[in-house]
């Protein structure tokens, strides 16, 4: 098993955002997290990346407990987060943004040339600044930047938010290519149908609890809807 999250609680100030989460991801697997706004999906992703300090339980990644590790150490161990809102560096051009991902010098398949092969558009725009790109193109840069780290686990938080359907299609199409290299993917997705069709397994979160989990192709949409809204 690549990632094993056991009894994870996380807090913002006095507010408990995650309650006793148990989530597993196998090597090379793709998993979707669905849930309404405020369900704790982004909090969970930020916990895995090490950006939230107030948490307890166990997060085991590649056999090591990373619960207390700072974000920069977790990144070097092979977890890459595509953060909500993409968060490209506005002062860096496309190529420089991509190169930031490679700072950990982790060996692997992905390098600048192969990112440009995966997303040819970025090769054309390599000298452009992020704010001159469309949202979909920025999404590709954010994924490329994360891949440059050659992660074993790629976390994508709300990558389709605010994007045109065609741009979302392109992003999801790239996932199959990414998984060939053995990278596991966890996506946070609002669109339940897309989540179910693009991934192996789905976890549904509601108010910081897991309310449903199962294999994507066996998922009962009615049951999922109930888990999603808590009705």
């Amino acid at each position: 098993m690549l990632l094993d999250v056991a009894s994870l609680d996380a807090f913002y100030d006095d507010l408990q955002a995650l309650h006793d989460l148990n989530i597993q991801v196998e090597r090379g697997e793709s998993v979707a997290l669905v849930g309404a706004n405020g369900a704790g999906k982004t909090t969970f992703m930020r916990c895995l990346a090490g950006l939230i300090e107030r948490k307890r339980g166990a997060i085991t990644f590649g056999g090591h407990n990373i619960l207390r590790m700072p974000a920069e150490a977790i990144a070097r161990r092979g977890i890459a987060l595509v953060p909500e809102g993409r968060m490209l560096f506005p002062s860096l051009n496309v190529e420089e943004n991509l190169l930031m991902g490679a700072l950990g010098r982790r060996p692997g398949y992905w390098n600048l040339q192969r990112i440009f092969t995966l997303f040819p558009l970025l090769a054309e725009r390599r000298r452009q600044m992020p704010n001159t790109l469309s949202g979909g193109q920025q999404g590709l840069v954010a994924i490329g930047r994360a891949l440059m780290a050659n992660p074993e686990l790629l976390l994508c938080d709300e990558i389709s938010l605010g994007l045109a359907p065609v741009a979302v299609d392109q992003i999801y199409a790239s996932f199959s290519r990414i998984r060939i290299e053995g990278t596991a993917i966890v996506v946070v997705e609002q669109d339940v149908k897309r989540a179910a069709s693009a991934t192996d397994r789905v976890y549904c979160l509601l108010e910081g609890h897991v309310t449903l989990q199962g294999q994507s192709r066996k998922l009962d949409l009615e049951e999922l809807t109930r888990a999603y809204f808590g009705t």
């Binding site: 950006l51 990144a75 953060p83 002062s91 860096l92 930031m100 700072l103």
Partner: peptide, 23 residues
């Protein structure tokens, strides 16, 4: 330079550079 890239990125967003392994 690479150092320059890291400095500019850190000025842009000190939380996000941590995701790239930078303290």
């Amino acid at each position: 330079t690479e150092l320059g890239r890291i400095v500019r990125a850190t000025a842009d967003n000190a939380e996000i550079v941590r995701l790239m392994g930078v303290r």
